[in-house]
Simulated assay, not measured.
Amino acid sequence: MSNATSSSSKAVKSLRATGRITLSDVARAAGVSPSTVSRALRGERAVDPALIERVQVVSSKLGYVPDPAARALASQRSDHVAILIPLLSNALFVDLLDAAQKTLRAAGFQTLMGVTHYDASEEEQLLREQLLHRPAGLLVTGLDHNPVTRKLMESSQVPCVHLMDLPAADRDAAPYCVGFRQTDAGAAMTRHLLQTGRKRIAFAAAQLDPRVMQRLYGWRSALQEAGVYEPTLEFLNPAPSSLALGGVLFEQIMQQRPAVDAIFFCNDDLAQGALMAALRLGIGVPSQVAIAGFNDLTGSDQMLPTLTTVRTPRAQIGEAAAHMLLSLMRGEAPAAPQLDLGFEIVQRQST
């Protein structure tokens, strides 16, 4: 019997009294120090691959499960990153989360996710709870937070990167963030509709979160520049965005403002619902009214007609933000505190 096997057997016997496998038990069974076990299980490159394999075999045989709380207490931080996103029912945030999680996991970090439901108080409470676990870093959606949440982020001294939004160009002490300028994207789509000859362009929105309101501001600015802005063409509904609500908004606009020749919806799901309603009502798109969306969600290129939209790089934002956070967690300064990944106007049949 090898020394490792003999040590492993002794470790198993000694644990019958305590009922819990510890890092020290794995270290004794593998014939190495506890710190080596810790580094081996994290897969650090400085550890010999053969040693990593040996530690993993012994750890698996003993049934060792790392104690994240003990590791965080010993190192003053854990090996997880806290991520706060508004919703999981929106493909936008699913794509972002998936890309960020893959990047962080490849670097040896786990993710602890919190869903804020666009509620500032819920975001504050989730952040308080996650900071108790001493996260190595934070990924937080948006830049609009209540004063208490901002103070918690600052006082925690935990590296933090914000997702999706970028601060105003003249803002001092801007945070680390990766995204694009929502206002610019809203203005760009509005200008596209103007260039197709549309003059009475409505804006239809739901949820009314800060990013939606920035798109609204971009729409307003573009129409004001063109001298065709009409306040009565804003249709804002605080309800959650959905296909069904898109249909309701479309019918409302066509009944109340029949002269409208284009509708810019703040999200693709609303625009998709509008296209279905137009088909049901026999209203020609784009011959009678053009329809545009935002985010280029799944199915937009399969609608009838296919949907013109703003393509946003949510997966690239998640990946780039994770890489920026990894740099900060290593104590390295990113090349730039803000990374603008831009957007793309995708013209299809609906405009």
Rank of each mutant, 00 (worst) to 15 (best):
W219V: 04
A188C: 02
R28P: 01
Q252N: 15
G31S: 11
T5I: 14
A204I: 07
G43T: 07
V161Y: 10
G142Y: 13
A292R: 03
L243V: 11
Q272H: 01
N146E: 07
Q157T: 09
R330F: 07
G137L: 04
A322S: 13
L97R: 02
L236Q: 08
A70I: 02
Q224L: 12
Y229L: 11
G246L: 05
E225M: 10
Y217V: 09
N267K: 11
G227W: 07
L138Y: 02
V260A: 15
V12H: 13
A239Y: 08
D165Q: 12
R311M: 07
P305H: 03
M276T: 11
Y217D: 12
E124N: 13
G137T: 03
V260E: 13
L339N: 09
Y229S: 07
K10Q: 15
S300R: 03
A136E: 00
R134I: 00
A292H: 03
Q316S: 15
L325W: 11
G246I: 09
L62K: 03
T309E: 06
V140K: 02
G282F: 02
S287L: 08
P337G: 07
A259M: 12
P147F: 02
Q224D: 07
D209T: 14
E332M: 14
L279Y: 13
A239Q: 15
F109G: 11
R150V: 06
S6L: 14
D209H: 05
R314T: 15
N146S: 10
V310T: 12
L236Y: 12
T306F: 09
A271F: 00
P175G: 10
R198L: 01
L139Y: 03
P305Q: 05
T232G: 11
A320W: 10
L249V: 09
P305S: 08
S78Y: 04
P66Y: 02
P210K: 08
T312I: 15
C160M: 12
G299L: 05
H117I: 00
F180A: 09
R200Y: 01
A290F: 06
M324H: 14
L279T: 14
M254F: 03
M213G: 01
T309P: 05
E344K: 10
G186I: 03
N295P: 02
F93R: 10
A322C: 11
R257A: 15
R200N: 10
D269P: 00
F109Q: 09
E154H: 15
D25K: 07
L297C: 04
A188E: 02
F264D: 01
S8G: 15
V161T: 07
T103I: 03
F93S: 08
Q56C: 09
E319G: 14
R45I: 04
A239G: 10
T36P: 10
V47S: 11
A107V: 04
D67I: 03
A292W: 00
D340S: 10
D48V: 10
A74E: 06
N90C: 09
A274H: 04
N295C: 08
R171V: 12
